[in-house]
Amino acid sequence: MSTAGAMPQQSETTGGTIIQIEHLHKIYMLGEVEVHALRGVSLSVSAGEFVAIMGASGSGKSTFMNVLGCLDKPTKGTYLLEGIDVGQLSRDELATIRNNKIGFVFQGFNLLSRTSALENAELPLFYTSLSPKVRKERAIEALNLVGLGDRIDHYPNQLSGGQQQRVAIARALVNTPSIILADEPTGNLDSRTSVEVMEIFQSLNEKGITVVLVTHEPDIADYTKRQVIFRDGKIRSDRTNEKPKNAAEFRRTLPEIDAEEEAA
């Protein structure tokens, strides 16, 4: 385990534990009724891993991801992120962590409507002290990385689902986070677009970014290096995928349907 305060660099591909979770519980109160969404989850993820979280609907995957993303607080249990006990942090400190350590990708994209792709990708940088020029450069860089360099002025409603998700990924990685968390990033996409998105995640992971994603589809999980399966708020199995599929290679075998989009 890394010591508190030590900031692992993004380039650190192996080694240090980046996520250390112990006996995590989450209980939702629905009036008088308690819904036990997580019942004692312990998980440890090292820097540079690529983890798929799977499991039946209602098994607590999203709940778990929201805790990982510092969007929600667990009812019980500890969560150390790069050695820092997240449970002890103030709202502002959590905001700073969300801003510069974590990139979150949602199933429903969650882009700001009537706001251009560029500004959406730039959004996390608004809450930093970077100059407008640097912010713009970085956002363009991130959009280029997801293959949307030619769509920067488009509004979300002028983009396809896959393109919107790529804007969301650009937004997640614009602040060079050490972890990218994605809750069913391909849930709303067709299989071809899903492969493209997985290709991006794989390339990010190759650069050393830790990726944790939730998926229902075993096909998608095959692109990851580790598969954790949830059931009823607990981890049922946790296994390493020795031979992850390569999304880039697989995509090349697919017939060219949309040559126009590929030209980008």
């Binding site: 969007l71 502002d92 905001a95 969300r98 979150f104 969650n110 959004l123 608004f126 937004r171």
Partner: peptide
């Protein structure tokens, strides 16, 4: 959305 990407209370 703004909070999820790091907006603080005062922002």
């Amino acid at each position: 959305i703004r909070m999820s990407v790091g907006a603080r209370e005062r922002d």
